[in-house]
Amino acid sequence: MSQAALLSVKGLEAKVEDKTILKGLDLEIKPGEVHAIMGPNGAGKSTLGYVLSGREGYEVVGGEATLAGTELLDIDIEERSRAGLFLAFQYPVEIPGVSNLEFLKSSVDAHREAQGLEPISSKEFLKEAREACKQVNLPAEFLKRGVNEGFSGGEKKRNEIMQMLLLKPKLCILDESDSGLDIDALQVVAEGVNSMRDGERSFVVVTHYQRLLDYIKPDFVHVLSDGKIVKSGDASLALELEAQGYSWLTEQRSADPIEMHKEVM
């Protein structure tokens, strides 16, 4: 009856330099589910994505994480991507001199190689990339430009979604993909995500605001505070948070952390 988890994170502890950020985080996501993670600044929301993707400087000190049965924490950054993990960055980096098109084709080919497929032909890839551009409302000329070079904040976020469309990951973590976006760009991002929901692919939507969740309907909402998930619920929890903020949760938690943790499960 219970379906196997796509992503399973257990007791994840991680530190940056000497500061422990994640303090025993548990999260289980089944295929096709959308989970929202909300929480106050500094709670560790972005850290979760960085740790799962393998960013240097984020040291795992405890716990485990598997994606579709693959032990994520043991493998290199690029292997995690090829295993089906995709992190849409809050602040995508600009890489002048490396063309978007060349980068994207290398990414797609690396994924194909991992699946035992031949590299995609340039012609076919260009067609797909143009299609993906169109879907996120980016002019095709962006493919020729340097990776994120001179892109506006909104263009960078849409470029992330475009990459997601091309790489077709199993699990997408959207790290504040709504920050700095106007309502039109927000809809573009949301439509990109929704177009990829197929009952198998799962999403983790990290956000501060309920607003994005109006467009991407979560199955579950979690509150991350001080390195742990302190409350979980359905979509209505996000509305409650919007109305009341986080303080009632963080206070309640310090009063009875064990009880809170049970509620999460």
């Binding site: 993707s53 393998g54 960013r55 240097e56 290199d76 950054i77 690029e78 995690r80 991507s81 090829r82 992190l87 960055f89 995508p92 980096v93 890489i95 490396v98 980068f103 994207l104 290398s106 990414s107 690396a110 994924h111 991992a114 990776v147 990459q163 790489l167």
Partner: peptide, 12 residues
């Protein structure tokens, strides 16, 4: 930049 490229599956 190195991390970003690798996070998309490009080998180091």
């Amino acid at each position: 930049a190195l991390y970003y490229l690798r996070s998309r599956g490009v080998s180091e």
